[in-house]
Amino acid sequence: MSNRKLTTRAARPLLAAMVLCLMLGCEGTTDIERLRQEMYNQSRFEPLEKNTFFADQRASRPWIKGTVARGQLRTDAHLYTGMVNGKPAETFPFPITRKVIQRGRERYNIYCTPCHGYRGDGRGMVVRRGMKQPPSYHIERLQNETPGYFFDVMTNGFGAMYSYASRIKPRDRWAIAAYIRALQLSQNATLEDVPADVRERLENE
């Protein structure tokens, strides 16, 4: 009998110690979802996670100045800067096919329509909510601009418009420039010149 008592007396603090150990994992929260998640997190970092090791606390590190990542060597000035001999290029760095224009249309609709609108008239949704109105692509000055100029505006921004270089890859920027050219040409054409699928959308606007 007294043996049994001894074991229970020893078991209690042991049990308490075990529960305490488990609770140490709680890191000061009682939210059950957080508790569950904390047991699932390993000591490695996912993209954009917090890392207190660095002064700015970002686990995803910015590129070190002057280094070139694999596959990021950019020697083709025409393709990557849009400049030829210090002037905006008058040609595209690769042949423009129907596929490129289609890609350009898709990318244009994602990144440019909020402000420039589907027709490129500068009356997108955000402009209607108070954004500075960009010029229409169909004014004479922009009709006469080179493809390299449009590439440059996307790469470096222009006035109130920010740069899109971090979000749109160089080839896609050229594809957008090609699509803008197609938009401009279509403005001087009649509706019958437009492919059926595009025409339908234009008519619905």
Binding site: P114, V126, M131, M161, Y162
Partner: peptide, 19 residues
């Protein structure tokens, strides 16, 4: 694999001008 959460620069493309 990662969808990306936008940097504040993306918000500022509009919110440097509106609101």
């Amino acid at each position: 694999s990662f969808a990306n959460i936008p940097p504040v620069e993306t918000c500022m493309t509009c919110h440097s001008q509106i609101w």
